[in-house]
C-alpha cells in the first residue's frame, strides 16, 4: 500500500520535464518536496492527476493496487488522489457548497443521494476548523477569493473528500502568518495512519507546522536528495546551489 512513483518521465511535446523521478509515500507518512522554481514540482502534481497537457513517456505510478496512469482524471480522484492546486481555478456561478456536494455525490453508487443535512453539518464543522466564514458556502468556487482564501478552500475540499493520498502544491504560499497556522492545523488534522501526504513547498517555515517524515530535494525533474526533516534546514541555510552541486558531483 502506497503511492509509488517509479522512474517517471513526462513532459510536453519537445521537452522532457520529469526525468526519471522515483518516490514512494506510504499511508501515515508526510513527505515534503522542495526544489528551485521550474524544477518540475507542479508538473509532477499535474502528471499524477492526469492533466492532458503532459505525456508520460516512461515509468509507472501505483496508487495502492491501481495503476494510476491507466485512469482518467476523475477516476484518479475517485480512486483516492487529491491535488491541492498551486493556482486553483474559478468556477463562476457554481457555489462552493454545490461543487463539493457534487464531488461527493460522484463518489456514491448510482441512485444513492447525499444526505444534505449531514453534509452541511460536516462542512460547517470543517469550515470552523479552518476559520472560514459561512459566506463561503454560497459564493462561487474561488471567484473573487483572495489568494489565501483560495488556498484555504483547497484544504476545505481535501477535508471534505478525505482522499487516501493528497499532493499539496505550495499551499503555504500566499498565506499570512495566522492563515499558515490555521491551514497547517487543518492539514495536521488530516494526518492519519490511512493517509499519505506529499507537500510541495519552498519554505522550511511550513515544515515547522507540518512535520514531514521525509524531505526530498527536486532539481531538474529528479529527486536529487532525500533525508529527514533536518534536510529542510540545510537547504534553508545553504540554498539549492548546494543541492545542484551535489548533483553535479554525483554525476
Amino acid at each position: 500500500m502506497s503511492l509509488k512513483i517509479e522512474n517517471l518521465h513526462a513532459g510536453i511535446p519537445g521537452r522532457e520535464i520529469l526525468k526519471g523521478l522515483t518516490l514512494e509515500v506510504k499511508p501515515g507518512e508526510v513527505h515534503a518536496i522542495m526544489g528551485p522554481n521550474g524544477s518540475g514540482k507542479s508538473t509532477l502534481s499535474k502528471v499524477l492527476a492526469g492533466h492532458e497537457e503532459y505525456a508520460v513517456t516512461e515509468g509507472k505510478v501505483m496508487l495502492d493496487d491501481t495503476n494510476l496512469l491507466d485512469l482518467a482524471v476523475d477516476a484518479r480522484s475517485r480512486a483516492g488522489l487529491f491535488l491541492a492546486f498551486q493556482y486553483p481555478f474559478e468556477i463562476p456561478g457554481v457555489s462552493n457548497a454545490n461543487f463539493i456536494r457534487a464531488a461527493l455525490q460522484a463518489r456514491l453508487p448510482k441512485g444513492e443521494d447525499i444526505d444534505a443535512v449531514a453534509f452541511y453539518k460536516r462542512m460547517y464543522a470543517r469550515m470552523d476548523e479552518l476559520e472560514m466564514s459561512r459566506s463561503f458556502t454560497a459564493r462561487s468556487v474561488n471567484e473573487g477569493f483572495s489568494g489565501g482564501e483560495k488556498k484555504r478552500n483547497e484544504i476545505l475540499q481535501m477535508m471534505m473528500l478525505e482522499p487516501k493520498y493528497a499532493v499539496l502544491d505550495e499551499t503555504d504560499s500566499g498565506l499570512d502568518i495566522d492563515a499558515l497556522r490555521i491551514v497547517s492545523k487543518g492539514v495536521n488534522a488530516m494526518r492519519s495512519s490511512e493517509r499519505g501526504l506529499l507537500v510541495i513547498t519552498h519554505y522550511q517555515r511550513l515544515l515547522d507546522y507540518i512535520k514531514p517524515d521525509v524531505v526530498h530535494v527536486m532539481v531538474d525533474g529528479r529527486i536529487v536528495h532525500s533525508g529527514g526533516p533536518e534536510l529542510a534546514l540545510v537547504l534553508e541555510e545553504k540554498g539549492y546551489d548546494w543541492a545542484k552541486e551535489e548533483l553535479v558531483n554525483a554525476a
Binding site: 476523475d74 475517485r78 463539493i100 464531488a103 475540499q157
Partner: peptide, 12 residues
C-alpha cells in the same frame, strides 16, 4: 483548465 480542476475533484 476549469474542467480539469473539476475532474480532479471526481466529476466526470
Amino acid at each position: 483548465e476549469q474542467i480539469f480542476y473539476m475532474q480532479q475533484r471526481g466529476l466526470s
